[in-house]
Computed example of a mutant assay.
Amino acid sequence: MDFWTTSLLLAVAAFAAGVLNAIAGGGSFLTFPALVFAGVPPIMANATSALAVSPGYLGSTLGFRAELRELPTRRLQREMTLSAVGGVAGALLLLVTPSHVFAGIVPWLLLFATALFAVGPVLARRAQAASHSGQGLAAWREPGLLLVAIYGGYFNGGLGILLMALYTVAGESRIHTVNALKNLNSLVLSWLAVGAFVLAGAIAWKEGLLMMVAATAGGFFGARWSRRLPAQWVRVGVIVTGLVMSALFFARSA
């Protein structure tokens, strides 16, 4: 592809990802494949995709400032520290993964993230039921957060669903609190992971900066369009996109 075609592909993918993340999530199903199809090596594409969608986490976190102020400061500090450690650990794990190994597991990661997105609502309901019935796993809250943060630093797909399920199972009964914690820890681990990618020289800056701008614009318009677009339609679109991308990457690795 020539420069203008590649730039258009990346900008459209990032804008659409911003819209998706504002409505239902799943934007990484577009940004990561677009970078790979544009010729960026898989590990660098994954790192650059994380950079592209990272600004959206800040706006989401600021939207839940009131809920975060109600939580114990020490608990927030501990969990932010765990998220930071996990995000950096996941990023370092990605950076030491041989390129051919990562290329081989990418289709499985995409398929896992798609399946996770598809069963997200069911997972959330079951987690909430377990919490209400007194079967929550509060003792696993912090170890679970560390593991999820490592996954998020390594591959961002489905991160929000895992965090929401974790907090619900661990006993958080208020959905706004769960969302606030999900956004805050996604912000921390993603920005720390991106920082590690930057220091390691794993970011494709020309593509990444273009996609950051487009994804931010998509998030702005997505927030406005979220009142008009049925979320269920968007979810189906994300799942179909994830399945198609998984199939394409399986075909590439065959």
Rank of each mutant, 00 (worst) to 15 (best):
L8A: 14
F197D: 08
R69M: 11
G160Q: 08
G59R: 12
L93E: 07
T5D: 14
T61N: 13
L35F: 11
G136F: 01
T61E: 15
A113E: 12
A202E: 15
A138G: 09
P41Q: 11
W225H: 06
A14M: 07
G160C: 01
V96N: 10
L93W: 06
I43S: 12
A11D: 09
S7L: 09
A202D: 14
A215L: 00
L94S: 13
T97H: 12
R75Y: 12
E172I: 00
P41D: 14
V106T: 10
N185L: 12
V19M: 13
V244N: 06
F117S: 05
A16L: 14
Q232D: 15
G160N: 12
Q135W: 14
G222H: 08
T114I: 03
A193T: 05
A50R: 07
G26C: 07
G26W: 06
F250M: 13
R78C: 03
P98A: 10
R227W: 09
A196N: 04
G26E: 14
E142P: 00
N179L: 01
L116F: 11
L20H: 04
P72W: 13
V213M: 03
A217G: 05
A165N: 09
Q232W: 03
R252H: 15
F197M: 02
A66Y: 13
M164E: 09
V53P: 01
S83D: 02
L95M: 13
L51G: 05
L71T: 01
A22V: 07
M1D: 14
L145S: 01
V119E: 10
S28N: 11
L10K: 09
G160K: 04
L109Y: 09
V12H: 03
G86Q: 05
F3W: 10
W108I: 09
V188F: 09
V194R: 02
L62M: 14
A149L: 03
R227T: 11
V148T: 12
R141G: 03
S49W: 08
S173R: 15
V234S: 02
L248N: 09
